[in-house]
Design a protein around this nucleic acid. Structure first.
Lengths: 155, 155
DNA sequence: ATGCAAGTTGCATATTTATACAAATATAGC
DNA sequence: GCTATATTTGTATAAATATGCAACTTGCAT
């Protein structure tokens, strides 16, 4: 499992710093970094890591990391201590925070651009999440845990 | 050329509102919407529109529209240019705007005094519309288009 | 109208990516 | 240790996607 973690880290590093336009290309770069991997495994890794393939004007297509934990990984790990609960009702999610933190908490959620979270509204200590009609709550939780790991502790 | 614009609009609409996991699937949905298209052309359209393919827990992979979060400095005279999407979930409408514009956008909606829109709540980049229980979404859209003509472009 | 350039499309196919399945490896419980 | 169970991986292949090319269309200047 540690082998895998190391591999993930290398993949992330390469994708963050270079314009990679195919898995074959990434395999070659990984080999240069001392990581041997087959295309099948890489495909599965990328899926697991939520790496997206997006059009790019020069290279045709490039891989990009999910725009979640990148910018503010350190920030959000601190800030998530201010979340006190997460509940659901119908097509709504309700995230309670310590007083005054709702807006701050809602920013990275907006940046997720999850197709399952249509929008958020922040009050003082409550963030309302408007969910897609057939959104899966488990998935929503997973997405949120990725930005706010500490959420696990209050679930 | 107008044929193409129309096709783009339909593609956008479908991708925004549904979880589409392959081009074949999208082709089928487009046909249902009266748009005949081959896989080659669709591939090119998606590339042109900067549509990304991202992993998704249930469906494996889904197509998503590019982040409309372009913080461009040029101020638009038309306020409706700051609306980036409109979706629905249950008895709620969700209007996404550029960061900071939600309150401004909500004002004329409130002034509509539509019996179908019971009230609005504006966050930073999201306006929540609470709809009458049996409100018709098509009618809501019509009302909004009357105030924000440019909405048509993002539907 | 005619011809030309630029743009668009479908077909066929190359390229790329995902996955079923079996083998290999790790993990837990005795 | 050993066996059972789960996880990870590679191989081979299926599935999905991108693209070269030729045909067709569109707009525009002659």
């Amino acid at each position: 499992m540690n082998q895998k973690t190391q591999r993930f880290a290398t993949i992330r590093k390469i994708i963050r710093n270079e314009l990679i336009s195919s898995q074959e290309e990434l395999i070659a770069r990984l080999r240069e970094c001392g990581v041997e991997i087959t295309q099948s495994t890489l495909s599965r890794d990328l899926k697991f890591m939520n790496v997206a393939k997006v059009p790019h004007k020069d290279k045709g297509y490039i891989y990009v990391l999910p725009n979640t934990v990148q910018h503010d990984a350190n920030v959000s790990s601190n800030i998530s201590d201010n979340i006190t609960s997460l509940t659901f009702s119908g097509n709504l999610g309700v995230l309670k925070t310590k007083s005054g933190y709702a807006s701050a908490i809602s920013v990275p959620i907006d940046n997720l651009d999850s197709p399952d979270i249509l929008g958020t509204i922040a009050g003082d200590n409550t963030v309302l999440l408007i969910l897609r009609e057939d959104a899966n709550r488990g998935q929503i939780i997973e997405s949120l845990v990725r930005i706010f790991p500490m959420i696990n502790n209050i679930l």
